[in-house]
Amino acid sequence: MAEVRAEMVANVWKVVVSEGDQVAEGDELVVLESMKMEIPVVADADGTVTALKVAEGDVVQEGDLIAVIE
């Protein structure tokens, strides 16, 4: 199981995947936006997205859980 967490305070601009999706390492899960910059959050392992904890428009804090990949 791999937890994907936010590296910084940001707004969730785009959610690319849904719960249940199969992803490969390096796939884009969500795109965050902070300080006028887009920051793609990618899967760090192959697997299934078993939990997706953010929605478009949410604000995430550093360390917040974004998704779980199993």
Binding site: E7, M8, A10, S34, M37, E62
Partner: peptide, 12 residues
């Protein structure tokens, strides 16, 4: 306000 390696923003 960004990390000096990858230049990702870092508010705080």
């Amino acid at each position: 306000a960004e990390d000096p390696q990858r230049f990702l923003p870092n508010p705080g």
